[in-house]
Structure formats: structure tokens, C-alpha cells
Design a protein around this nucleic acid. Structure first.
Length: 583
RNA sequence: GCGCCCGUAGCUCAGCUGGAUAGAGCAACGGACUUCUAAUCCGUAGGCCACAGGUUCGAAUCCUGUCGGGCGCACCA
């Protein structure tokens, strides 16, 4: 299927043969061998560094190894020529026919071209968003939400068994604050004058409907009641209301989690104690006194004995407290139980997507997963850097105190879901990102969303035109895949095909690196190649997609660009962006 | 003070986990519209990959140190 896989196999067989003939020592390690298109197209279609990698192992000169391997490669099907160059690179030039035939292969594979099995059905848990249920999602949450979602799709596309999960922090003190804020709105709904929202409570308008709903459901029974009477019920009620709000916010971005996991259930079920018992059994829990942090020393610092987890045994900087001074569990203790629960549900790879401000939290969770699983389960925290909102080049100021922050919904309403999703995936997750309202809605090549969408739309525009130029022309996959591919000879055509041959490699690399932004970059490049070829048709009529008096050639060209559209569609699908057919 | 992330063209950033002569876009300059939507394309110019060592056939990429920027640093979540 994938040409690079084919040659990986061929190379292994050749090395094996040389080992058996005694021309190479036994058991060569091919781990660092690469098989990839050379950066310089003039060097050929596929290059491998195998000779240099084996030099030391085999105690032979790279050129000598290269010559032996090259001889073997010349017998592989579809190989036109094999050169040895530079320090010992082996460059493979493929028969043009093999390259041309890839178009049919891509079309026949449909949306599965590029789909990979490297995941091997490994159970991966991707946890993302996990915002405290105390209000609507704002911009800061946006990036992590989209990144996590696209990463999950990418892993799914590459053969992992993915669960998308949201951890609801519904057990902490901020939920009491939420309940008190909602209670205020409840009294307001019943006509009480609540005045200004006191410092420390949530001032946002989004709690007004919650207050109304409370009034509707419970009437006036809590109007003058003591907090102890209503706190429990209102906590529950407003948490549910906030989660509904958040779910609906996420829905505007087409983000849907498989599992919403409540922190509260960990407290109620005794799972925290159970998880800590597990650590206790390993001798990793003890009572001790931590040193004061260097640098900014808290004013109210005091030395006191605490229940600690020995995370320093697993690479953390200091041991971490699992109990507060009042004897209740820390947030971290619940997180120990939560990650333990994921492990017990059978996941062998845990990915948590957090904001960069949680960077200091990574090592302790890493430590706990190692400790709980004896290093058998992999934990990977992916941190998303800040997004800077710009309007006309100047940063948008936001103040949480006044409640004047821009919500995720605001942004989606203003620029659209597809734009938000794509732009958030145009940067590496650990680099900060500028989101400029003016630029992201611009209809020009400066705007990658538009540029890629436009390429896809252009293909469909041509297909529509073709249907007019050749009434009844059969544009089904089968018909297109059956077209004559041998007409592709122009550099723009061959380069486009070579680019498409790279798609499966990019997908796999992106999945292994857990970097969905690479998909965006690939799509931009593919779109660029396509636009270039389109324009070449302006100067050279013979390079147009629709050739008025040549139905067969037209069909071939349509096959080529349909393959392009198919890959764009698959790529956009991973990113969660809708491919448009008309603009 | 410690930990994590970052430093690549004037600007914003890629760089396929160590490969051959470091790439895009914007901005600048010069070209292509009786068109399959020029919403695009082609060309020119622009670099001590922060700095200094190290590892090896080979380093923007890995290691160490320095400088500069961001984030975080008992019981919060």
C-alpha cells in the first residue's frame, strides 16, 4: 500500500540475504535506518541512510555497504535506477509508471488512504478540557479543547483505541463558591435586592438563568434558610447546569467526549483511599515535613508534618502532600485516584492536555503513574501555550474580575467553527499563538484555513464544470481510478503525486509525535502544489484539468485532482474542519 | 534559588525525532487576469539556526554550560 513500507520490507530482506551470505555480520540493528524522500528532489524519489547506519556495526566503509545494498535494490519491482551518493546515501529513482499508478491506489483507498495501524489498538485515554464547572468556556480553554480533540482523532486514524475524556472538578471549594453565587441569583430571581456581587463570588450573568431555574424548582423555601440547608442541593444543581452549559459550548466546536468523569465520585466511593493504599503498600506514603519553597516564600508559611507521597523516587523535585491540614484529601490525592482509575480501566497510555500554567504539575502525575503501574503505563502531559487575541494587531484586554472576558462561544460566533479549529492547530502546542480576528477571516493565502478550503472547493468546481463539458461523464471512484494515468509527465503533476505519496508518512509521524499541527502544514503544502498546477494551466492549455476535445485526458486529470481533494478531506476530518465544495 | 517550555530571514513560524546546498507565509521588489473562480500563481532578494563547548561519518535537531524570554514553585483547583 504505502510505498515507503514496501521499501522498508525490501531493505530488510536484502540485509537478511547479505547476512546469510556472510557479506554482512549477523543481526544488524536497523532501528536508525530511515527511508524517506530526500529533501532535494533531484536526488531521487526515495533515499536511505542504511549504509551510514551500518558502518560502525559492520565495521565496513559506508560506500561498500551502499554498493551491496544498492545492487539488491535494483531488483525490486518498480525501481528505475539506484545511485550511491555523498557519504553513502542510497538514492532510489522509481519508474514513472509506479508513481503514476499511485493515483489509482489513492482513489481506491478512498478515505482510508493514510490510515495507519501503528497504534495496534492500544487503549489510549486522552483527557482534555476538564475545566472547572463554574462558568462558560473562555478563549483560554479553546486551544486545549481543540488540540485534544484533534489529537484524539489523529490517534484514532492511526489505529489506537481512543477514549475522549473530561474530568469534572466538582469536589473542590470553588463549587461551594459556585453554589453561593447561584444562591444569590436565586434570591434575585425571587425579587430580593442582592446589590453588588460580593468579592470572591462569580459575578457572571450566566448564573442568572440558573437562579431562575432554582426559583422555579424550589420556590421560596430557601429564601431565608441557613446555608447548611441548601448548599448541598444547590451545589449539585448548579454543577449540573454548568456542565450543561460547557457541553453546549463544546458542541459549538463539535467536541464531544466519550466519558465525563466526576471527581466527586472518587471521594464518595472510597477510591481515593484505595489508590493511596496501593501506594502505601509500596512503601511510598509517609509523614514528613517539607522545606519552604525558595524564591517567593508564602507569608503564612509554617513548618508542619504532612502525609506525603514519595514522588522524588520517580523523578519529581519534592515529595507531594496528599492530605490537607484539616485531614481532607488534596486535589492531588483525587488525581492519584483518577489516574489509578484510568489504569484500572485498562488504558496503557494516558494523555492529559493542560494549559502551560499547569506545567509544574506534570512531574508529580508522571511519578504517580509510574509508581502505580511499575512504569508499565505511559503518561504524557501535553501543554498548550497561551493564545493571544488580537484585534487589528493590538492585543484584546481581558479582565476576569469584571467578568469581561471573551468566551469561546463569542469567538465561534464571530469567525466560525472551522476557522477557530484550524487556526488553533496551525502552531505547535508548546509555542504561543496569536489569534488575530482580522487575519483569520481574511480571504487570502495569508489565511491557511481559507487557502486549504479554497483548494478543495476548486477541485469540486472543476468537477461541476466537467459534468457540463462532458455530459454524463462518469466521475465515480471506480471510473476515475480506471483512467489512464500514464499521461502524467509534467513536473507539477509528478510533484503533486509525490507529495500525496508522503501523506501516510506525515500522518504516522504526526501521531507518533502527538502533534496534530503537522497535518495542517501538510495540507497547506498540498494545497499550494495544487494551486500552482492550476495556474500552470493558465499559460499552458494542455495542462488544464478539462481539455475540451479530449475526454480521456480530462478523466485522467480529474482523477488526479480528486485524489488531492480526497486527502484534503481526510486531513480536515482529522482536524475537525468541514471541507467545503463551494465558496 | 529550583523545575518545565521557548530562542531559526526585518515580522509570524515550519523543519518529517541525527542526514546531502536550512524552508514557507507576510512585508519589499519584478512579472502573469478575453480564466477550469487572479480569492491564485511565477520570479528576485533576505540566515553565524541566541552564544560557547561536547558526542560522530554528519548537529538547527542529542548532551553540558552561558545569555535572553514565557510559565510554575507547601494545605488552592
Amino acid at each position: 500500500m504505502n510505498i515507503f513500507d514496501t521499501f522498508t520490507g525490501a531493505l530488510k530482506a536484502i540485509v537478511c540475504g547479505l547476512e546469510n551470505d556472510g557479506r554482512l555480520p549477523k543481526d544488524m540493528d536497523l532501528k536508525n535506518v530511515t527511508i524517506e524522500p530526500p529533501r532535494e528532489a533531484t536526488h531521487g524519489d526515495i533515499a536511505t541512510n542504511i549504509a551510514m547506519v551500518l558502518t560502525r556495526q559492520a565495521r565496513m566503509k559506508p560506500r561498500d555497504i551502499a554498493d551491496m545494498v544498492a545492487a539488491g535494490l535494483r531488483d525490486v519491482d518498480g525501481v528505475e535506477r539506484v545511485d550511491v551518493a555523498g557519504p553513502g546515501f542510497i538514492n532510489i529513482i522509481l519508474k514513472r509508471q509506479l508513481i503514476q499508478s499511485q493515483v489509482a491506489a489513492i482513489l481506491n483507498a478512498g478515505g482510508n488512504y493514510g490510515r495507519s495501524k501503528i497504534g495496534g489498538h492500544e487503549k489510549v485515554n486522552v483527557e482534555y478540557v476538564s475545566v472547572n464547572p463554574t462558568g462558560p468556556l473562555h478563549v483560554g480553554h479553546c486551544r486545549g479543547a481543540i488540540f485534544g480533540d484533534a489529537l484524539a482523532s489523529l490517534l484514532d486514524y492511526t489505529g489506537y483505541d481512543v477514549t475522549r475524556e473530561y474530568y469534572i472538578n466538582d469536589a473542590g471549594g470553588q463549587i461551594d463558591t459556585l453554589a453561593r453565587s447561584a444562591y444569590l441569583r436565586y434570591r434575585e430571581a425571587l425579587g430580593a435586592d442582592i446589590g453588588k456581587i460580593p468579592e470572591g463570588l462569580y459575578p457572571g450573568d450566566y448564573l442568572i438563568p440558573v437562579g431562575k431555574a432554582l426559583a422555579e424548582k424550589f420556590g421560596r423555601r430557601w429564601l431565608e434558610a441557613d446555608e447548611s440547608e441548601w448548599l448541598h442541593d444547590i451545589r449539585q444543581f448548579s454543577t449540573d447546569a454548568m456542565m450543561d452549559l460547557i457541553r453546549s459550548d463544546l458542541d459549538t466546536l463539535s467536541i464531544r467526549h466519550d466519558v465525563f468523569f466526576s471527581e466527586l465520585t472518587l471521594h464518595k466511593s472510597g477510591k481515593i483511599q484505595a489508590a493511596l493504599d496501593k501506594l502505601e503498600d509500596k512503601g511510598l506514603i509517609y509523614t514528613g515535613v517539607l522545606e519552604a519553597p525558595k524564591g517567593t516564600r508564602p507569608d503564612d508559611w509554617e513548618e508542619r508534618p504532612q502525609t506525603l507521597f514519595k514522588s522524588t523516587d520517580f523523578g519529581d523535585d519534592v515529595d507531594r502532600a496528599v492530605k490537607k491540614s484539616d485531614g481532607s484529601w488534596t486535589y492531588f490525592a483525587a488525581d492519584v485516584a483518577y489516574h489509578n482509575d484510568k489504569v484500572e480501566r485498562g488504558f496503557t497510555s494516558l494523555i492529559d492536555v493542560w494549559g502551560a500554567d499547569h506545567g509544574g504539575y506534570v512531574k508529580r502525575v508522571e511519578a504517580v503513574v509510574k509508581a502505580l503501574t511499575d512504569n508499565r503505563v505511559n503518561f504524557d502531559a501535553r501543554l498548550c501555550q497561551m493564545v493571544r487575541l488580537l484585534r487589528d494587531g493590538t492585543p484584546v484586554k481581558m479582565s476576569k474580575r469584571s467578568g469581561a472576558f471573551i468566551t469561546m462561544r463569542d469567538i465561534v460566533n464571530e469567525v466560525g467553527r472551522d476557522v477557530v479549529r484550524f487556526i488553533m492547530l496551525t502552531r505547535k502546542n508548546d509555542a504561543s499563538l496569536d489569534f488575530d480576528f482580522a487575519r483569520v477571516t481574511e480571504q487570502s493565502k495569508d489565511n491557511p484555513v481559507f487557502y486549504v478550503q479554497y483548494a478543495h472547493a476548486r477541485v469540486h468546481s472543476v468537477l461541476r464544470k466537467a459534468d457540463i463539458a462532458f455530459p454524463g461523464i462518469n466521475l465515480s471512484v471506480a471510473s476515475l481510478a480506471d483512467a489512464d494515468m500514464t499521461i502524467f509527465s509534467d513536473s507539477s503533476e509528478l510533484s503533486l503525486i509525490r507529495n500525496m505519496m508522503n501523506w501516510p508518512r506525515f500522518v504516522e509521524a504526526a501521531a507518533l509525535a502527538r502533534e496534530p499541527h503537522r497535518i495542517s502544514y501538510y495540507l497547506y503544502e498540498l494545497a499550494s502544489e495544487f494551486h500552482a498546477m492550476w495556474n500552470k494551466g493558465n499559460d499552458n492549455l494542455d495542462l488544464r484539468f478539462i481539455i475540451e476535445d479530449d475526454r480521456a485526458k480530462t478523466l485522467s486529470r480529474l482523477a488526479l485532482i480528486s485524489a488531492v481533494a480526497g486527502i484534503i478531506m481526510a486531513g480536515l476530518d482529522i482536524l475537525g474542519v468541514e471541507p467545503v465544495t463551494e465558496m
